[in-house]
Design a binder for these strands. Structure first.
Length: 463
RNA sequence: GCCCCCAUCGUCUAGCGGCCUAGGACAUCACCCUUUCAAGGUGACGGCACGGGUUCGAAUCCCGUUGGGGGUGCCA
């Protein structure tokens, strides 16, 4: 690798569904890697921990691919698995120990808590620093935090100072000898030649520790960039337990990847003008960490939905119809679906809503009682329906245009406006008071089915 | 408790000392359009957390207060 090639990385741990916050972090790294002609390294941090499961790893890779981040692009590198780098982590630990940057400690958490309490402090006080202990069961390897101040230069937050005195001698190797996050993470970054670490702000407190590790390992620390976390309505960090954060769920509800990407990228960042809907290519060339906001941003599903609507309306008619097909039962007529598609495009929020919007075309009508009662309560409804059926039955041209003008003809004798006059027909044919434009629906439905339903309604109303 | 970060409409943001009577978008409301519902159009509502400075001039710079967030693990 050349030192002039920026190397970004995204390092999720497979502990659950892929999170929208993780998606945003990945996207930020991806945009930068591509913009700078660098690489995007995917590293799965699967080191021990009972929470890791292989299926989550597949979920991460699928989700990233959905967002457009995949090995189809030469910028993408990996995935690598942290678990396969254990030897290197251990080597680094040994090196640190040999150089005096780390020491073994035999104290248990309980003993530490006890001593801390008795001394009026909270954390570990470096009590085993000069015992000269060697490795052994139950002994952890701790980093010897030097005196002084650690200055973290962060592309999004500026310069942040940490007094080393408040950073306790953190653990590198557990009592069972396995490497801990801070060590594994840094060693992997070093090994993989990572030059830019862009991640969520929750890692900022880890950064001075990691920077000390880089230095102790004889390496120059990477460029840091800590972006604010995403929060829920209560302004708390998005959590897998409480909040709807699974990217896969949004995907299965029919959110478009493009809309999700655009939304995520403009959460905490803006192109600097009044636009917020903009193509990826433009986002990629305009995105800079220096422009990322410093405050946590609320992940607002309503705004995501609005973005999705925008993207749906931007689709070509063909692309839209094709996408609709993927969201309805196979047995539904693709021709009929394609015919009605242009009329649902402006009213669709997410694709999972497609079936419910047009099901009356493909299955038996289900009359909604409330709608029926409301519409048929009008004294003219039955008569109007009867007159309309008669007029429609005589039609030779079953087109939306003719259907409309015919009803307009009929309604004059009832002294109604079209808005009122179409209601009985609508409820008879679709079962509801709202739906796609009526005459276009009738056209797609065809003469036989339409008339059949209207006659059934007349019978129902008469009986 | 301690450490760190942050603070413009309800929400996402523009703003980097004078273009600010603070702009846009989502949401909400009203009107127009209309074949229901949407979409579209027009408009309304609504904000620089507070207090001190600095400056001829502050949303923009400094300090403090308050509020919020993150971290404080032999999790990642």
């Amino acid at each position: 690798m050349t030192s002039s090639t920026p190397r970004f990385r995204f390092a999720p741990s497979p502990t659950g569904f892929f999170h929208v916050g993780g998606a945003r972090t990945a996207l930020f790294n991806w945009a930068l890697a591509r913009q700078l002609g660098g690489r995007f390294v995917l590293r799965i941090e699967d080191t021990d921990d009972a929470r890791n499961r292989p299926e989550w790893t597949d979920g991460i890779i699928d989700a990233l691919a959905w967002l457009g981040i995949s090995s189809d692009d030469p910028v993408f590198e990996g995935p690598y698995f942290q678990s396969s780098g254990t030897d290197q982590h251990l080597d680094a630990a040994a090196k640190l120990h040999a150089a005096g940057h780390a020491y073994y400690c035999a104290m248990t958490p309980d003993e530490i808590a006890e001593r801390a309490a008795s001394e009026g402090g909270t954390g570990y006080g470096g009590w085993s620093r000069d015992l000269g202990l060697g490795p052994g069961p139950g002994r952890v390897l701790r980093f010897r935090v030097p005196d002084g101040t650690t200055v973290v230069d962060d592309l999004v937050r500026g310069r942040v100072n940490f007094d080393n005195a408040v950073i306790e001698d953190f653990v590198l190797l557990r009592g069972n000898g396995s490497p801990v996050f801070n060590l594994a993470n840094v060693v992997d970054d070093v090994t993989m030649g990572i030059t830019h670490v862009v991640r969520a702000e929750e890692h900022l407190p880890n950064t001075p520790k990691q920077q000390m590790l880089w230095t102790a390992l004889g390496e120059r620390p990477p460029v840091w960039g800590h972006v604010p976390v995403l929060v829920n309505e209560q302004r708390k960090k998005l959590s897998k337990r409480r909040d709807k954060v699974a990217l896969e769920q949004y995907r299965s509800e029919g959110f478009l990847a493009e809309a999700m990407v655009n939304y995520l990228m403009t959460l905490g960042w803006s192109p600097g003008d009044d636009r917020e809907i903009l193509p990826w290519a433009e986002i990629e060339s305009l995105f800079h960490l220096e422009d990322v906001n410093l405050s946590p941003a609320f992940f607002d599903v309503r705004k995501l939905a609005a973005f999705n609507g925008e993207y749906i309306r931007m689709m070509s008619a063909d692309a839209f119809a094709e996408e609709c097909c993927r969201w309805v039962p196979d047995e539904w007529s693709k021709d009929q679906l394609a015919a009605i598609a242009p009329h649902i495009q402006p009213r669709l929020v997410t694709f999972s809503d497609v079936p419910a919007l047009v099901d009356f075309i493909f299955s038996e009508v289900v009359i909604d009682e409330e709608s029926w009662n409301k519409v048929m309560a009008a004294d003219y409804s039955l008569a109007l329906l009867t007159a309309t059926v008669d007029a429609y039955a005589a039609l030779e041209d079953w087109s939306a245009e003719v259907l409309k003008s015919t009803l307009e003809q009929v309604m004059t004798t009832f002294d109604l406006k079209l808005g009122k006059a179409q209601a009985p027909v609508r409820v008879a044919v679709t079962g509801r008071t709202v739906g796609p434009p009526l005459f276009e629906s009738l056209e797609v439905l065809g003469v036989d089915v339409s008339l059949g339903r209207m006659r059934a309604a007349i019978e129902r109303a008469s009986g």
